[in-house]
């Protein structure tokens, strides 16, 4: 089984953040690889008790993709921020192309509660969420960033606080309000 070398991801992330779009072509398969690995485990139900143990799986996946161990302390914040943005772009793009491919390529929104035969409501959520985050960023960029770091980047509250140079309390408050506001937006986006 191919294992991603975290140092490669790190280098590619740096290349991407300094403007090399080609680095993205190499990063996407790495992220997709982790996506597959997780999906495969879920399909096989290797670990049925999902609440606790899949958290570990997801955590492992993030560690392989976003490993800040080799990063100089001063660069950590920027590194986390870049990787969160990257994850957001790749996963939203994934949801968009995956969910729409069977509908002839036209983006369609799906009701959150009803679901759809060909598209998991979660796919629609990711696309709607992305749009809602854009809206939020227009009037409260820090809250949007907190969501990007936590939800897409898989960062802990402490790490997000480090990136944004605010207290953990602030991150927690931002996170709680942003979440409920985003749910409202996703609902209106999906109807």
């Amino acid at each position: 089984m191919t294992r991603t070398a975290p140092e490669e991801v790190t280098l590619l992330l740096k290349a991407w953040s300094s403007g090399d779009q080609a680095a993205l072509d190499r990063l996407m398969p790495l992220v997709y690889g982790e996506l597959h690995r997780l999906a495969r485990r879920y399909m096989r139900r290797e670990r049925p008790d999902h609440s606790l143990q899949t958290t570990d799986l997801v955590h492992e996946a993030y560690l392989r993709l976003v490993d800040a161990k080799g990063i100089a302390w001063q660069e950590r914040a920027q590194f986390f921020a870049v990787s969160a943005t990257l994850m957001r772009r790749i996963l939203v793009e994934f949801a968009r192309s995956h969910g729409c491919s069977k509908r002839g390529g036209q983006a369609q929104k799906v009701k959150l509660e009803e679901g759809c035969s060909c598209m998991s409501p979660r796919d629609a959520d990711l696309v709607c969420l992305d749009e809602a985050l854009e809206t939020l960023a227009a009037f409260d960029p820090r809250k949007a960033k907190v969501v990007e770091l936590r939800f897409f980047g898989g960062l802990s509250v402490a790490e997000a606080a480090e990136v944004l140079e605010v207290s953990e309390d602030t991150v927690l408050r931002d996170w709680r309000l942003a979440k409920v506001w985003l749910i409202r937006e996703i609902r209106s986006c999906a109807t």
């Binding site: 597959h36 999906a39 996963l91 959520d125 939800f151």
Partner: peptide, 17 residues
């Protein structure tokens, strides 16, 4: 919705589809 990070949400979508 935000219980697990996005990577997990996407992976479950793949598995469930």
């Amino acid at each position: 919705l935000f219980e697990q990070p996005a990577l997990d949400v996407a992976a479950r979508a793949v598995a469930e589809s």
